[in-house]
Design a protein around this nucleic acid. Sequence first.
DNA 1: AATGCGTTTGCACACGTGTGCAATTTAGCG
DNA 2: CGCTAAATTGCACACGTGTGCAAACGCATT
Lengths: 335, 335
Amino acid sequence: MKSGFITAADVAREAGVSRSAVSRTFTPGASVSKDVRERILRAAEKLGYRVNRLAQGLQMAQSNLVGVVAANLTSPFNTALLDGISAALFKRGLQCMLLNAEAARDDIGNLVNQVLEYRVRAVIILSGAPPEEIIEACLRNDVRLILINRGTLPGNADKIDTDDLTGGRLAAERMLQDGRRHVAIMRSGNGSVSQKRRVESFVTRMNQADVKITDWMRGPNSFETGCEAARILLADKSIDGAFCATDLIALGFLNTARFELGIQVPRDFSIIGFDNIPETEWPSHRLTTVSHPVKAFIEAILNCLDDDRQLSEGALNFTIPVELIERGTTAAHDA
Amino acid sequence: MKSGFITAADVAREAGVSRSAVSRTFTPGASVSKDVRERILRAAEKLGYRVNRLAQGLQMAQSNLVGVVAANLTSPFNTALLDGISAALFKRGLQCMLLNAEAARDDIGNLVNQVLEYRVRAVIILSGAPPEEIIEACLRNDVRLILINRGTLPGNADKIDTDDLTGGRLAAERMLQDGRRHVAIMRSGNGSVSQKRRVESFVTRMNQADVKITDWMRGPNSFETGCEAARILLADKSIDGAFCATDLIALGFLNTARFELGIQVPRDFSIIGFDNIPETEWPSHRLTTVSHPVKAFIEAILNCLDDDRQLSEGALNFTIPVELIERGTTAAHDA
DNA sequence: AATGCGTTTGCACACGTGTGCAATTTAGCG
DNA sequence: CGCTAAATTGCACACGTGTGCAAACGCATT
């Protein structure tokens, strides 16, 4: 027991074969006789052998690690995404290397290094603050890059984007059906690309119907941001609707409007969110929202990972479909 | 540009020195002259050199990876913990390898392998379903193990546990101050050690005061579990209080009790949760709860990681202090 | 039995790094 | 300048794995 770890050589000695045979036994599709394979498996089991992925990665010039750069892990939608990604990667035999972009805010260079130094198979960037630097570095080092809701950036990275245009339009149509004439639109201050698209699409449709718009863009993507917006915006009694770029903001807005300011939602006021996080289903809120299912994101990501074209041959693009989920913060349909 | 990656040898050639010098330049405390160091750094910068961590890990017989085994990533407390851990690891120059225990439920052996094959520096197990197998495997392979809220298991793993006994007692005292005589206690069906401790401590105190107890242990740790419990338990009109082992369950219970069944909380009914997740502060709920701060967990984890004693010399133990956070689901204090 | 062909096996090299050891250069000091 | 100690540098090995190549082997057909 030197250093506590068993190597392929140890197994080979135990089984009375060459080290190559051990390696081949654990390499799918390699040529080993049934007899030898069984003897090796028995020896490996007995000694508790585990292949050293570091050595394997060195030899293969690539690891099974996939870097996942996430920010705002407190946002339920992001964690749902992370949950799905980590599960999917595990089932593919890949490892999930989680990098907290928040913690690396003023040290992006270091973050880039940590990813690249491990020769990761790919890097997935969840929406959030835009680390441009990492994008450029990945592309320069031939590391596959998967961007989620970051819009059309230059460079051939795979891109997966919510159909925000349809999402914004669906929300607008619903708002118009409710007969609202002056709606507030809200998003967080750090201007994510995806939030911008939703809001712009919403505004475009509202403008066509001559509905007045009041814009709010401030603070982090949080419940409190919605609360604050409600307290200030709702001083203007002419506002009769709100479209929030994320559910978290929408829930804060709704909470303050309904329970603090006593506004009758949906009778006098309509609220629509975006993401369809679990909290929207709480009976106390029942928020009408636009959903872009996590499942669809996962599928798209797996498609990107499975695709084994060269990086120079261009990239993949996926659009995640959306759906308006009508709950209790918009008026009931006219039948 | 062979294979797209620059090696130390490439840098050495560019700088006109030996490869050893390059290695030493990037090894803190090694002996390199100022002149050579600068020449090497310039060459490395120019070529875009990055250490290959796989080779480094192979050489050092250890990687900078830390395995984090998490289940129930949809629980806000767990994600807050994960957020803190990933940030702290990053700042320590360590990598966070996230493993989804949920996805590996019927494939724990595979999960064990994935961790050990990467020669991780340590494994952190967040509370949740108990993968006994991984614990045993880590200890057998001399991998440091950090158990969070999993109680006193055999084997010398570092253990970090919430002071559940005090937590349960504090909740009980508050409930008694409210004069409740029949309280329901709730926890999820998969019996986590930590939940069990809280509840038992609570019950012990209530028994001393001759308060009637109704037990509920069913379903996952979720909002819906709390809703379901409320609908069934509250048919019994004599119940006038509830202690929930997690905030998620407590919020579901509160939501159904207050908004669906119209029960006056806290006038006629007291509810106390556990975890102090952000949602407890929502004005619509303002849940009284027991907090065990994420910050304290992170500190304890870092202490474990920094500690470089041998595994055979015993393990560390930390107890996380708790605090009762009084909000709007228990009666106001008598002054 | 001899031939031919497909399968199995072992040798040896490569992957990129850290570091002990000895050789060499530099610095310090009289 | 000469001597000694210290700092620097290069060589060579080790870490554990996958795989090309050639040798050895098994088996069926002639």
